[in-house]
Design a protein around this nucleic acid. Structure first.
Lengths: 353, 353
DNA sequence: CAACTGCGAAAAATCGATTTACTCATTTCG
DNA sequence: CGAAATGAGTAAATCGATTTTTCGCAGTTG
């Protein structure tokens, strides 16, 4: 079908129009599926389209409308399974509705987050799915508000007075973790996390603590929250263990913390679960193949993505009303890294099941 | 500065023009940094831009030029560290040159890969960075060729007669792995991988085998290559071990294979490195915190991205000449998962260092 | 003093669609 | 039978820039 059009200009709607012997407006209508076109003309258009290999230029098509058929997605990073899956899901959902997803990474920087958002605004995107670096009160959300953009906030958010929010039900999941750990007899538990992401970390911590204390007021819960980056967390943790503290279980409020905990256990020669138990928020593929397999809270990526897109498109189509704050339930996967406290000789024996 | 323009139409170049008392063409020139504008007029334009909060609409700006300032990136998936890092790097490099990166996932499907590419073509992207699902001979590359698109192929490619290619020097890295394993005394090694991605897997396998046999012609190298998906690989591996085969080391040609190997070791209660050694192609953050830490070949993501973008932009700017095929050197990280053959009692003892 | 050169800016064409307004026919109905 | 309604299609305006062409005016030159 396509012979000579190798590297030439692509056919435009006018090329199709003249070949079909109709006006460009008619071609536009046929492409849009309008029914008020004589079927003979429609056929001529189809033939011309086929012959020329014509496809609508989505950018040109978007020029006339105020909201372009583009959805912006801003994630704190692309390197983790969680956000990778999220982008994949969002992309699919956008495509389903004939939109293109343009994803950008804020690289864990609020300054960059705002810059990227401004660029999305320049592009006149119809809507934005923003996973803020910190929480819903950052400069990016303020920018969206000030410029009347439509958007949904996800992941590191709880609720907002201007935008719909969707996130994992961190508090409930954390409570479930607490139930399990306390139920197994753990009475001295260390919780670690990064405090920057105030919204979610707070929820996870509070959810965990409330439930643990409800079950047994005498449970001792230590907390190490580092600001900003992961390195201070590592050294705080090192100090903590160095002082001789020996909790029987550690609950990490985020993936990076789980890695830090594991590497500290390593340094000290501690094995899970005999020497210490470990549960992490956020699952990853490798966690089920290591020895021991690492217990983790699985976030409902697909549900979050689906709900976010539903809400976003409803707003794009003009839905009014106060913003909603959705929490999607997590699953807690108890794996071998969790055991009874004092389940084995410290720093000895094997860690096999 | 911005008071009332909350949700109204954004200011266009004409709004700026009339406020500055000049024509739209003059505004355009000022924004483009053309020097043939009287400085007084330029100042008036700057003031108007400032006052109105004007920003160029990149989409409208791109309409007139044949090549739009957009780079398309097509990755087989977004869920892995490798491609996540790759997209992040590519995004940064595109931005540096004033381009927008639009990334899409082909979800390991050649059909989808071509579809996505066609959509990029509709967008009139200036260039494409394509990481093919299989290799350089797939339908997507053919589509690019047939439509005169400019692009670079990366990762699962060796060389091409139409496009520049950039990938990790898999063969050299594999040879290095062979040197280490054979040097440590391993004489029965299993290599596992997925055959679909012919280009790279072939290179990795050949590089490994050639070097191993060069060092000792009596080395026994078994190979399990599964087609298409990871599940057949798992069952082949299970059969292989089930038949009583006991290589002293396994070299996985790709990340998913490493996970499969680990989980099979798990099932059988084998520990690295005492029961069996393991090296995987492709590094991941978790590999250094598990017990044992997993030896891996680290791909030079940044170099691949940088080189790919350099080549791509050179072509976009009209550079002629035959396509080049670059190989970027990898690093091999020997970690605890590799030890001397028969380094410990089988299925017994600890796996500590 | 008429013709020429240049500079800087404005007017108009362009990119590739969509959408509005308008023109003919042909029906429908009072 | 004539007026209004409907149907099918087109020309032109529009979206927001960029780029080409044209123009006015000042200063030179023959």
């Amino acid at each position: 079908m396509a012979h000579k059009e190798a590297k030439q200009r692509r056919p435009s709607i006018h090329d199709v129009a003249s070949r079909a012997g109709v006006s460009a407006a008619t071609v536009s209508k046929v492409m849009a599926g309008v029914t008020t076109v004589k079927s003979e003309n429609a056929q001529r258009v189809f033939d011309a389209v086929e012959h020329l290999g014509y496809r609508v230029d989505p950018l040109a098509s978007d020029m006339r409308r105020a909201k372009r058929r583009i959805i912006g997605a801003i994630m704190p990073e692309f390197e983790s399974e969680f956000f990778g899956q999220m982008v994949t899901e969002l992309e699919g959902l956008a495509e389903q509705r004939g939109y293109t997803l343009v994803a950008a990474s804020s690289r864990e920087s609020e300054a960059r987050e705002k810059e990227v958002l401004a660029r999305m605004h320049d592009w006149r995107v119809a809507g934005v799915v923003l996973a803020p670096v910190r929480n819903e009160h950052g400069p990016a959300a303020a920018f969206m508000k000030a410029n009347g953009m439509t958007g949904v906030l996800i992941d590191r958010v709880l609720s907002d007075d201007a935008f719909d929010t969707v996130s994992a039900d961190s508090a409930a999941a954390s409570a479930e973790v607490a139930t399990m750990l306390v139920g197994m007899g753990h009475r001295h538990i260390l919780v670690i996390g990064l405090a920057e992401q105030a919204a979610t970390v707070r929820a996870r911590l509070d959810g965990f603590r409330a439930q643990a204390l409800a079950l047994d007021p005498l449970v001792r819960i230590d907390v190490i929250l580092s600001e900003v980056s992961v390195d201070p967390l590592r050294s705080s943790l090192r100090d903590y263990f160095g002082k001789g503290e020996r909790p029987t279980a550690v609950y990490s409020l985020l993936l990076k913390g789980t890695l830090v905990a594991l590497s500290e256990f390593r340094r000290r020669g501690w094995h899970c679960p005999n020497d210490i138990s470990l549960v992490g928020f956020d699952d990853a593929e490798w966690m089920q193949v290591t020895w021991p397999a690492i217990a983790a809270v699985v976030q409902p990526v697909r549900q979050i993505a689906t709900e976010a897109m539903n809400l976003l498109f409803a707003r794009i189509e003009g839905e009014e009303g106060p913003p909603t704050a959705r929490l999607e339930p997590c699953r807690v996967l108890m794996r071998e890294s969790v055991g009874l406290p004092g389940g084995g000789p410290h720093s000895g024996g094997g860690d096999r099941q």
